[in-house]
C-alpha cells in the first residue's frame, strides 16, 4: 500500500490533485482512495487531502498518519503545519518551491530535524504552471511529480490517462486541456532530489 498526504491551502487544488491521482492509479489497475479532509472551507486555509493505492481492496476509512509520500503544495505551510509528521522511514517529500535545492534542504532540516532519511524533492510547480497555464495552479505539475514517484504507472500511460481525464473534466472549456498536459509533461522530469540518500525504492507491499 502506498499512502500519500497532500498539504496545501484552500483553492490551490490539493484535493483535485488527489482525486486525479486516484483516477490515474485506477487506470493502472489498482485499488484506490482519494479523499480530502473537510472543515470550514476557506480560501487560503491549510487543507489536507489523501491517497491510498494498493493491489488489494482498501477498507480503512481513517486519515493517513504514516504516509509514504508527503506533498507540500504551499511552502508557507512549513512552520505552521507539521507536514512531515509520521512520514515513513525512507519516505519522500515533494515541495513546491522556487528556492535553490540547498535552501530547501536547510529549510526542512530546520523545521523537521527527523526527516534526514527522507528523500526531499523540489519542483517549481508555480513557475511551470505560470508558463504552461498562464496562472499559478501548482497542483497539476505536482500531480505529475507524485505520479512518477509512486511508480504505479509509466510516463506514456500516465499522460494517456490524464488526457482522457482532462477531456472529461474540461469538456466545457477544451482550450485549457493542452496547457494542463504541457504542465504535466514539464513536471514529469522537473523535480530535483535535494538530498542524496539511498533509501530503497518505494514499492507496493501488503
Amino acid at each position: 500500500m502506498i499512502e500519500i498526504r497532500w498539504h496545501g491551502r484552500g483553492g490551490q487544488g490539493a484535493k483535485t490533485a488527489a482525486l486525479l491521482l486516484a483516477d490515474a492509479a485506477f487506470a493502472a489497475g489498482l485499488y484506490v482512495q482519494g479523499f480530502p479532509e473537510y472543515g470550514p472551507e476557506r480560501m487560503g486555509a491549510p487543507i489536507t487531502a489523501y491517497n491510498r493505492l494498493d493491489e488489494n481492496r482498501i477498507r480503512a476509512h481513517s486519515n493517513i498518519y504514516d504516509p509514504d509520500i508527503v506533498v507540500v503544495v504551499d511552502e508557507t505551510l512549513l512552520g505552521a503545519v507539521d507536514v512531515a509528521a509520521g512520514l515513513k522511514c525512507g519516505g519522500k517529500i515533494v515541495v513546491n518551491t522556487s528556492r535553490p535545492p540547498a535552501d530547501v534542504k536547510a529549510e526542512f532540516e530546520k523545521f523537521f530535524p527527523d526527516c534526514g532519511n527522507a528523500e526531499i524533492y523540489a519542483v517549481d510547480a508555480a513557475e511551470i504552471s505560470r508558463r504552461t497555464l498562464g496562472k499559478n495552479l501548482p497542483n497539476t505539475p505536482l500531480l505529475s511529480v507524485v505520479a512518477k514517484l509512486t511508480g504505479v504507472l509509466d510516463e506514456q500511460k500516465f499522460f494517456g490517462v490524464m488526457q482522457e481525464a482532462y477531456e472529461e473534466k474540461f469538456a466545457a472549456k477544451p482550450e485549457v486541456i493542452e496547457g494542463n498536459m504541457e504542465a504535466l509533461r514539464e513536471a514529469w522530469n522537473g523535480a530535483v532530489l535535494v538530498n542524496a540518500t539511498h533509501s530503497p525504492e518505494l514499492t507496493i507491499e501488503n
Binding site: F26, V32, Q33, F35, Y38, R57, I58, H61
Partner: peptide, 12 residues
C-alpha cells in the same frame, strides 16, 4: 452513508 468519509472519497 457516511458524510465525506464515503460521500466525497473516490473508491473502486
Amino acid at each position: 452513508q457516511d458524510g465525506f468519509i464515503t460521500s466525497h472519497a473516490i473508491e473502486n
